[in-house]
Design a protein around this nucleic acid. Structure first.
Lengths: 345, 345
DNA sequence: ATAAGCTGTGGAAACGTTTCCACGCTCATA
DNA sequence: TATGAGCGTGGAAACGTTTCCACAGCTTAT
């Protein structure tokens, strides 16, 4: 198929290629008549600028943003975040940005991908989901002039991070269970620094512990179970908890996937939820609604959307929006209930 | 930051740029010693070929595949498909293909995106999820020499489509319910040709109807409820069915989302599942496991993976793998049960 | 009348690769 | 010794844009 180039357009419109380029890029220095003629030629030829050629000269906007992620730790959360990113891109539809997905398999692979992205220079900016950046990595991105925004971090780092306040979320969850009268509350989550060095679990646990401490309750070591982020592992940890001689009356799992595993474990042991044990998660996935899981909602979509807005502002050198999200909130459903009777023991 | 180019590498290695290019592209026509020298220079400079410049000369592989999709019809299915695509790309890791996401909002937008993709020529091939192609569109892609593979279609069209056999799936679902003794079975699904002109619902219904017909049962019109693909709409349709003077004893919903809506509707009406009514879906989402929904599993991940394999074969002019997937299969869970008693009425 | 400044325009150069042609070397063959 | 084929190599040309410099034509100030 014949693909007209900018030169064909110029010839047809009887102008120079520079003028066509200026029309394409909305330069003000073109008279209305010239612009009309060029636009007519463009329409007639069905011309579209070749985005690749457009990206070659170094100073140009590439109209690509990269998304770096380990997407398969949680399908539903990943999808919700992607949805948010798309919504953000729709907001800036006229800029015609596209999204390039870099999926990462390990921490080493992450560094490798990051280096490759910088070296090959195919994106205008980067959204980094979940991963934390080392100082060298930040420096590398800054040296390359590549703006970057994090998604799913606490906002206290030295780079813009948009995500749920994990500490507060953990605090709210524990407070909710405490208000129901529970005192023997277990925490089930990832290692505080996991394979990918995600620190989410530690942050949520901190909030959890603070809520207990405020009410003068210690966090019992045997009630804290940490393991690799995986459904089957979570089932095992939950089973251990439920089989303790003095089992907890409530479990707070650091994510819904693990909370669902708790439900599964209880079912396999013949324990009823919430009668025998209350279970609470964190995320508010689609599944949680259908299962009736009490959880802490974090706002995946708004976060993704905000991350895009923030990044595009950085790219354009505009003032970025305040990186403020609605705070996490407890969504009470059917897997928790007030502690009955035991208080009187 | 200084980005070394192929010329820097050539100078350092004391060879010509052509030789460096040949090393980069694994041409056999380089002596081992020369190759070593070039590789050493590449390593020393930390050189990475600029992927954009690499894409400019027209005959080149672009190392991009485009994915065109309406991603938000079903989050979980979308995520599973993406996962499959990523797995497929991992299989061909050495080729370093990347994925560019084109998300589509409407049928008109689909055509627009397709035209833009062809005109700007930024991808080597296209995976088209769910959407059907018009003859003109197929022709346009063929004229442009752009290979394309469909994901989620029946395999009888005149282009390679990888997806569940919807007809068979519908047939299996109905057969399963019939084997349980049900005869009053409702079908709940999308319009047979919906907003996006997806024909999935019609295909699944055809299989469903054939199973009934084989046992000499007519499909009662009042038991067929079609509507826009949306949770709330599905709840309404399900409520209508359950409120019929002579309600069905089983409902087959054309997707799990709608089946979950049936469960929700039954709950709101105070009806127990499966005691009052059996409910069966199609997809086997994550949620379905947790909810215990009987369903027909379609193999999203293998499908995505196969689609990538197929497309990369087309791009390379190699013989594509047979586009054969494991057939859909019924996954019995807790939302269906044998019809008890009613047969004796 | 001349100089200076401004505006719109044309087109060469640059971006970093791949491709392709030409060249020189080696080795087999006549 | 002369010829031809084959192989590895060098580097110019090409890809389609943007950028930037130069210039023509005007207006305004001197």
């Amino acid at each position: 198929m014949f693909r007209p180039t900018i030169r064909d357009v110029a010839r047809k419109a009887g102008v120079g290629i520079g003028t066509v380029s200026r029309v394409l890029n909305n330069s003000p220095k073109v008279t209305p008549e010239t612009r009309q003629a060029v636009l007519a030629a463009i329409a007639e030829l069905g011309f579209r600028p070749n985005t690749i050629a457009r990206q070659l000269p170094r100073r140009t906007r590439l109209h690509n943003i990269g998304v770096v992620t380990q997407p398969f730790i949680n399908y539903q959360a990943f999808a919700a975040q992607m949805r948010g990113l798309q919504l953000g891109l729709y907001d800036y539809d006229s800029k015609r940005y596209e999204m390039v997905l870099y999926s990462v398999r390990s921490l080493a692979h992450f560094d490798e991908q990051l280096t490759a992205i910088v070296r090959t220079g195919t994106v205008d900016g980067l959204i980094i989901i979940d991963f934390d950046l080392l100082d060298e990595q930040k420096q590398m991105l800054r040296d390359a002039g590549l703006p970057f925004v994090g998604l799913n971090h606490l906002q206290d780092a030295d780079w813009p991070c948009i995500g749920a306040d994990n500490h507060l979320g953990g605090y709210l969850a524990a407070s909710y269970l405490l208000d129901l009268g529970h005192t023997d509350i277990a925490y089930l989550g990832d290692e505080f620094v996991d394979t990918f060095e995600f620190k989410t679990s530690g942050q949520r646990y901190e909030g959890f512990r603070r809520a207990l401490a405020e009410r003068g309750l210690p966090a019992k070591d045997e009630y804290v179970r940490l393991g690799f982020h995986d459904y089957d592992v979570a089932i095992e940890l939950a089973t251990e908890l439920l089989r303790l001689p003095d089992p907890p009356t409530a479990i707070f799992a650091m994510c819904d996937m693990q909370a669902l595993a708790c439900l599964d474990a209880a079912r396999r042991l013949g324990l009823r939820v919430p009668e025998a044990v209350s279970v609470m998660g964190f995320d508010d996935l689609e599944t949680s609604y259908h299962v009736g899981l009490t959880t802490v909602r974090q706002h995946f979509e708004p976060a993704g959307r905000l991350a895009v807005q923030y990044l595009l502002a950085l790219i354009d050198g505009a003032p970025p929006p305040p990186p403020v999200l609605p705070p996490p909130e407890v969504i009470p459903r059917q897997t928790t209930r007030p502690l009955a009777g035991k208080g009187a023991v």
